[in-house]
Design a binder for these strands. Structure first.
Lengths: 160, 160
DNA sequence: GTATGACCTCAAGTACACTTGAGGTCAAAT
DNA sequence: ATTTGACCTCAAGTGTACTTGAGGTCATAC
């Protein structure tokens, strides 16, 4: 019996599409998750005569970016947006990926800035002890990262 | 009929505990979510003779920190850990909060560093166009933030 | 030619983080 | 006294992101 790797190599010309198993091994994403991403339209595949999926090589990059986003807590719906304008069924051009790259960078920047702000505030809190004191930016999320909904109010003087 | 705020004010001595409604308005967290957090042991309440919840004022801070964590995509189980050593039922001391503060800061640092790393890599990718090229750190999550499971492999030369 | 492993579909199940609803109680105002 | 809004419990439902399982097909090895 040949190993998976050997099986993969058998269909492994430089332009050959990848089986779902190879995709899974190369990206670390379970086949079931790949099915799921495909059902959401995040990735796409062609089918063989026998109805098996075959992935173009540029799908590796899409899947890798999806997993990066996941690690950062970015929901798949946002990933969908980040992939806007990156062609799904044809190999994306250099410019396509550059546009996507800038989009991702902006998203990362936003998240980093939110975290940095909280870090600065926490540092202040450690210095001054205000985490157990009155008004602390960290405890006023409206200021920190923008609110959803009615939002909290600043702690009052008596809320020590 | 008195407004909510007026109703709150009625029980609003400087050391009085807060009703769930007031907690909700002050933190922007829904009462149902407060119930939920309590069921997980993230927060605690005492009860009135009539079985209504009353929250000590230091719970405001706990709830606010929970919402901060949520915005950063930190799961509640990690929040639980971050609150280790912060007393739940008695008012935490200055030192308790300082320890927690440092813990939070370390957590934020870790996340920021992960993001910064990806940003640097993306910047490189935008400059050199490698997001559409061969080996890119961004596409090698093992290097970037540590892997869970078998993990992906670096893209090969032919995977353009 | 048959066994084996990789693959297929579709339905159901899981985990997290809650929300919604039913049915009932509590407390302040009129 | 009764109305009204805030509160209670408990069960079930929601959305996201998948995994698991049943039942069957495909492709390669022996």
């Amino acid at each position: 019996m040949s190993s998976d790797a050997a099986a993969d190599r058998a269909v492994h010309g430089p332009d050959e599409p990848l089986t779902i198993g190879e995709m899974s091994r190369r990206t670390g994403v379970a086949p079931s998750a790949l099915h799921f991403y495909e059902s959401l339209g995040l990735i796409a595949s062609t089918r063989t005569a026998g109805n098996q999926r075959r992935y173009a090589r540029h799908m590796l990059r899409r899947v890798s970016l999806i997993t990066v986003a996941k690690r950062l807590g970015i929901p798949l719906s946002d990933v969908q947006d980040a992939f806007a304008d990156v062609p799904l069924t044809q190999t994306p051009s250099h410019d396509d990926w550059q546009r996507a790259s800038r989009r991702w960078k902006r998203e990362l920047e936003k998240r980093r800035e939110g975290i940095e702000r909280l870090e600065r505030e926490l540092t202040g809190c450690i210095g001054c002890g205000c985490l157990s004191m009155k008004a602390c930016g960290l405890l006023n999320p409206d200021d920190a990262l923008g609110s959803q909904g009615a939002g909290p109010q600043r702690l009052r003087d008596e809320d020590t």
